[in-house]
Design a protein around this nucleic acid. Structure first.
Length: 364
DNA sequence: GCGGATCAC
DNA sequence: GATGGTGATCCGC
């Protein structure tokens, strides 16, 4: 058999795209087995080879960054550090802890909608919304076997069969999801009539006025909100993050997913210790590529680690990007009114288009 | 401006 | 047998 040409350096990054991330609740043996099956079924495909080419280009970019990084002199680094520190002081000085934001994220949205309308899908049924070529959303039961959003269905099918279970496919039915999204939104309006619909299954609510008016905490509001969503949709659960900024609320909404909530107290210390240990990928604007750059050039995996490398960060990125990242590392971003149109107001461009997939990351 | 890359969903 | 679709933004040219 012909050997597959994968350099030692390229393999791990390719693997990172192969749905092998975040599998809480699975043993290492399971994870390894899933990784192996996905790899074996993928490695000869055109898609995989294209992915490899992309990874290779990123690797070259990283090597260029590394060279630049190594050429930075001590005095140059020092001046970048001073610039970073001035910026950090300025950003921290403008920290705004006044608003209470919620990020609401529906749990396994498409799958949950299907289960709600089809009793035979309820309980611990291993199924996926989508088909044998592509999966949109996996039921939580299916996720236990490694099935993920944006995974080819035939691979998902194999993963389940290897575990001795069969995977049921349910076709995508967008009108159905829009109907439930609208029901959930009737609940959102009770808390913030101007809520921001980020997508079909995700929204930001400014709970400040609601909390003040009812004299309740953000945590209590989140509990009520989850209850109202459950009621309005007659059965859909969501996860809620509460914080003083939309960025933090979004990250927090993932902490106790599914059907949970998490509050980041509106205090500087609490925010900094919340964000510090977060993997950089959690920061909006840091995607697959930037994550690799930061890890492979600066050796930073978490927010706190990148903060320690702030000088190099400023040296390698444009001022605008560096500022954005530094801001995020302090837990700052999305405190004020959003730049986008809010629900209920006339919008010049239609609100965000439909999406085919849910985010892929939700752990069990 | 335009095209390519990146990101989000 | 088979591996998404679209818009937005930024950057370098």
């Amino acid at each position: 058999m012909a050997t597959v040409r994968i350099s030692a350096a390229a393999a791990p990054s390719s693997f990172s795209t192969l749905f092998t991330h975040e599998k809480a609740g699975m043993s290492n043996v399971d994870k390894e087995k899933i990784k192996r099956i996905v790899y074996e079924m993928s490695k000869d495909s055109a898609h995989f080879k294209e992915q490899e080419r992309r990874d290779q280009r990123v690797t070259e970019h990283i090597n260029a960054c590394r060279e630049r990084h190594q050429r930075i002199g001590a005095d140059e680094l020092k001046s970048h550090e001073q610039r970073a520190d001035r910026l950090l002081v300025e950003l921290d000085g403008h920290r705004n802890l006044e608003r209470t934001w919620a990020c609401v994220d529906m749990d396994a949205f498409f799958a949950a909608c299907e289960a709600l309308e089809d009793p035979s899908l309820r309980g611990d049924v291993v199924f996926a919304v989508g088909g044998t070529s592509m999966i949109s959303t996996a039921s939580y039961a299916a996720r236990r076997y490694g099935v993920r959003s944006a995974m080819p269905g035939f691979i998902a099918q194999r993963l389940c069969r290897e575990a001795g279970v069969s995977l049921r496919f349910v076709p995508v039915d967008f009108p159905k999801y829009l109907k439930f999204a609208e029901l959930a939104r009737t609940a959102f309006r009770l808390f913030d009539p101007h809520f921001i619909a980020a997508s079909c299954d995700e929204a930001f609510l400014d709970l400040t006025d609601y909390c003040a008016h009812h004299a309740i905490s953000g945590a209590e509001a989140a509990t009520r909100l989850r209850h109202q969503v459950l009621e309005a949709t007659r059965g859909l659960t969501c996860s809620v993050g509460i914080a003083s900024s939309r960025m933090l609320a979004k990250i927090a909404s993932d902490v106790n997913k599914p059907n949970g909530q998490y509050v980041v107290p509106a205090e500087r210390e609490a925010i900094v210790s919340f964000i510090g240990p977060m993997p950089l990928r959690k920061i909006p604007g840091i995607g697959r590529v930037t994550e690799r750059v930061l890890r492979e050039v600066l050796g930073a995996e978490t927010c706190a680690e990148l903060l320690a490398k702030r000088a190099a960060l400023c040296a390698l990125f444009t001022a605008r990007v560096a500022r954005e990242h530094l801001s995020a590392l302090l837990g700052i971003g999305g405190e004020g009114p959003p730049p986008l149109q809010r629900e209920g107001e006339p919008s010049q461009k239609g609100v965000s288009q439909e999406r085919t997939f849910e985010p892929t990351g939700a752990p069990l």
